[in-house]
Computed example of a mutant assay.
Amino acid sequence: MAGSFSAHVRRVTVALFVLQLALLPMMAIASDADPEQDFCVADPNNPTIVNGLVCKNPALVNGTDFKSTVLATPGNTNNSLGSMVTAAAAGKFPGINTLGISMARLDFAKGGLVPPHTHPRATEIIFVVEGSLFVGFVSTDGTLFATTLQKGDVFVFPRGLLHFELNVCDGTATAIAALNSQNPGTQIQAVALFNSGIGEVVLEKAFGLGEKAVQKIEYAVEAANKKP
């Protein structure tokens, strides 16, 4: 009986080990799912809702579908933050649909700031085209990793971590970002907390603030994030 039980335990152990090995590729996926065809140019006119964007008929696809000029024009930095992020994600660049990548252009006026935010579905790497930026991210243990970037420098923000970019040069600045998701998502922390309707009682308790202080922050966040 003991020998039979031991053999059963060994079989179960081996089965669990094999199952774990089978799941490793799934656990290793850190961005968008792999494409299942050469390309899937997005069809923005298709109202069907899927996890991604519906493919355009391949017979109607041509070379221009894989080109975008969305990053060619500087963003309008005439706003309270003095910055503008122009995204080349699948919604505006149909050719990258299912390819697991996107880009963005970051334009800064003097002193301009891209406020603390996260990309829940992507790691981001930025390249400074012009100017100087003070950038950083905060790890899950609360440690700040920050540095100043000059023209030509590259910096990476790990997936999902809070990060920011601040122009610290005497003039304007520009950076280009690449992200490993066709739709990385962006959540600005101040907006998510103070301009989403969470409820003042929650914010008062969370930050140890009085009602008037929370309301003042809410008004300030709303004004700072209004579209130009």
Rank of each mutant, 00 (worst) to 15 (best):
A2Q: 01
H8G: 02
V9I: 14
R11E: 12
T13R: 14
A15S: 09
L16C: 08
L16R: 09
Q20R: 13
L21P: 00
L21C: 12
A22V: 09
A22T: 04
L23S: 10
L23P: 00
I29H: 06
D32F: 06
A33R: 13
D34F: 12
P35D: 14
F39W: 11
V41S: 07
P44S: 08
P44K: 10
I49L: 15
V50R: 09
L53V: 13
L53R: 15
P58G: 11
L60N: 10
V61Q: 04
V61M: 08
T64R: 11
D65R: 00
F66H: 02
T69C: 00
T69H: 11
T69W: 01
T69G: 08
V70G: 04
N76M: 07
N76C: 09
T77S: 05
T77V: 15
N78V: 03
N79V: 02
V85Q: 04
V85T: 13
T86P: 04
A87V: 09
A87Q: 06
A88E: 04
G91Y: 03
K92P: 03
P94K: 01
N97R: 03
G100P: 09
I101A: 03
I101Q: 02
S102F: 06
S102T: 07
D107L: 01
A109Y: 00
K110W: 01
G112V: 04
H117A: 15
P120E: 10
A122C: 13
A122V: 11
T123Q: 15
E124Y: 09
V129N: 08
S132I: 03
F134D: 07
V135G: 02
D141S: 13
T143F: 11
T143C: 06
T143P: 01
T143I: 14
L144E: 13
T147F: 00
T148G: 02
Q150P: 00
K151N: 11
D153C: 09
V154C: 10
V154T: 12
F155A: 11
V156S: 14
F157Q: 05
L161S: 04
H163F: 12
E165G: 01
N167C: 00
V168P: 04
V168G: 05
C169P: 02
D170E: 14
G171W: 02
G171A: 13
T172C: 00
A173Q: 02
A173L: 05
A173W: 03
T174E: 06
T174G: 00
T174A: 03
A177Y: 05
A178Y: 01
L179T: 02
L179C: 04
N180G: 09
N180C: 05
S181I: 10
Q182A: 12
G185I: 10
Q187C: 11
A190T: 08
V191Q: 09
L193A: 14
F194Q: 05
G197Q: 08
I198R: 04
G199F: 09
E200R: 10
V201I: 12
E204M: 15
G208V: 08
L209K: 11
G210D: 15
E211R: 12
A213S: 15
V214L: 07
Q215T: 12
E218L: 02
A220M: 07
A223E: 15
P228V: 10
